[in-house]
Design a protein around this nucleic acid. Structure first.
Lengths: 101, 101
DNA sequence: CCAATATGTAACTTATTGGTTACAAATATA
DNA sequence: TATATTTGTAACCAATAAGTTACATATTGG
């Protein structure tokens, strides 16, 4: 039952989400093959974390398991982040101004 | 040198950022006092993580250390997240539609 | 000058995380 | 049916994280 904040903290997990976003549903094995530096069960554990954060939908097709992105929980992160937008924009405005002077 | 993704993964650290955003600059001790369940040095360690993620500016005033939010690094998170907005909106549209039917 | 205050850090402990290898279970295929 | 394929999980290990207490340092105020 991990939070979406937790789930996206790890760069490998972000890459998994990126792959599903950019290329659509994929099998567990396809996803694992993207990370030659990590064993297949290692990737499987990342998938579990993402599953527990409800970021993945899974569909069994015979012996294959297809994973699909469900980005809905990321809207929680967005909602939190949104409150900060004014603050970094202010900062970037200052920076821009400083450059112009 | 922790990433903003790492830094915001912990709920206590998010609360620290929230406090600085909502109420402006505060002393290290003020921030620590918000978390009766955690010792002052415990909070101090969270402040270090936030500092290393460059989310805090500090200003020494005598023996007091004032912390101020610098939200700029959060724009990295926003940039990543932005690519997913279409996906969760799609999901919410589906949900709305289902409710209406 | 000395005691109190504000803060960070070191050293340590425990829990969590990210990785591994070995194995089990289900399904497809020769 | 026997074998190969696809996948998750259990058990384990090392590194990291989050917490603690004890301590060091700097500054203020009596």
């Amino acid at each position: 039952m991990s939070s979406p904040f937790q789930a996206i903290a790890d760069p490998t997990r972000r890459q998994i989400l990126d792959a599903l976003r950019a290329e659509g549903p994929q099998r567990a094995g396809d996803l694992a093959a993207r990370f030659p530096a990590i064993s297949r069960p290692g990737v499987s554990k990342h998938l579990r974390v993402l599953r527990q954060a409800r970021l993945l939908r899974q569909e069994r097709r015979g012996r294959e398991l297809w994973y699909q992105l469900d980005a809905t929980p990321l809207s929680q992160v967005e909602a939190w982040l949104e409150q900060y937008a004014a603050f970094w924009e202010e900062k970037l405005r200052d920076l821009k101004k400083a450059v112009e002077e």
